[in-house]
């Protein structure tokens, strides 16, 4: 009675770490968001170039997420459900774009699309151009965003008991009918989260895009250009608008992906 409960030093370390991490992330961002005046922000958003670059960022990231959804979903399903020879290797390959320095990604894709490569020659013949085009930007963003989609959706599929699919099959549904009626219906939230992760990664990409397409200008490239040409004051308002628009979009998607109260 009367003795004070001793606080464990490890608990103090966890609290200190939490505060440090939150401050480390939020402090520079908050400072940057608060520095431009309202007038600067208003002028910037009325600039058609800024609007165009933010829209291009959202559009190309969205396209990258859509492509990831279309080709990444069956791939993630295979990884989640089947064991095959070389599976670990395939899983490592999908993580490669996360590890490679971003300019290297740009250089690698340009190398393929160049005149000296058969693929580049083939693409030229069918009228596909990578260098300095929206196609090039989408290609690069898909490359960097795909691992985030595949890994998220794979975890989502793994969380669905395989017995539900077995039951569906034994009741007469084929593999594809089972995927549509059971697996997809239970995994769509993880797909939405995968789309968020993929487009979030894509919208923040700079290093790979600047190699493949300086123009048309996505928002991160515009921020960099304004910073190098005019200094920090001119780049900040564009950055603030990019953060605001991205945040709103991701918040909306995140709300859609939340389970209903009775499904938690």
């Amino acid at each position: 009675m009367g003795t004070k409960r001793k606080i464990d030093p490890f608990f103090c370390i966890t609290v200190f770490s939490t505060v440090t991490v939150v401050v480390f992330i939020l402090f520079p961002l908050t400072e940057m968001v608060l520095q431009p005046s309202v007038q600067d922000l208003k002028d910037t958003i009325c600039d058609p170039d800024v609007l165009g670059s933010i829209w291009l960022s959202i559009y190309t990231s969205g396209m990258a997420a859509l492509i990831s959804f279309l080709i990444g979903t069956p791939f993630a399903y295979l990884l989640a459900r089947k064991d095959f020879f070389g599976k670990k290797l395939v899983e490592s390959i999908i993580d490669l774009p996360i590890m490679i320095p971003h300019p290297v990604v740009g250089i690698a894709i340009l190398g393929l699309a160049g005149k000296n490569h058969w693929l580049g020659q083939l693409m030229q013949q069918v009228g596909i151009q990578i260098m300095g085009t929206v196609t090039g930007i989408v290609t690069v963003l898909t490359f960097v965003g795909l691992p985030f989609y595949v890994n998220t959706v794979k975890a989502g599929f793994e969380a669905i008991p395989v017995r539900l699919e077995n039951i569906s099959r034994s009741l007469g549904a084929s593999l594809s009918e089972t995927f549509v009626r059971v697996t997809f219906r239970l995994a769509w939230r993880s797909m939405l989260v995968g789309i968020i992760m993929c487009s979030a990664r894509a919208i923040s990409e700079f290093g790979a895009v600047v190699i493949v397409a300086y123009h048309p200008m996505i928002a991160p490239v515009m921020i960099y250009e304004r910073f190098t040409a005019y200094g920090i004051k001119y780049s900040q308002p564009v950055a603030v608008w990019l953060i605001v628009v991205s945040l709103l979009l991701f918040l909306l998607l995140r709300i859609c992906s939340l389970p209903k109260e009775n499904q938690k």
Partner: peptide
Amino acid sequence: PPEQRGTS
């Protein structure tokens, strides 16, 4: 395949 076996 499971769907053609008539087992539940």
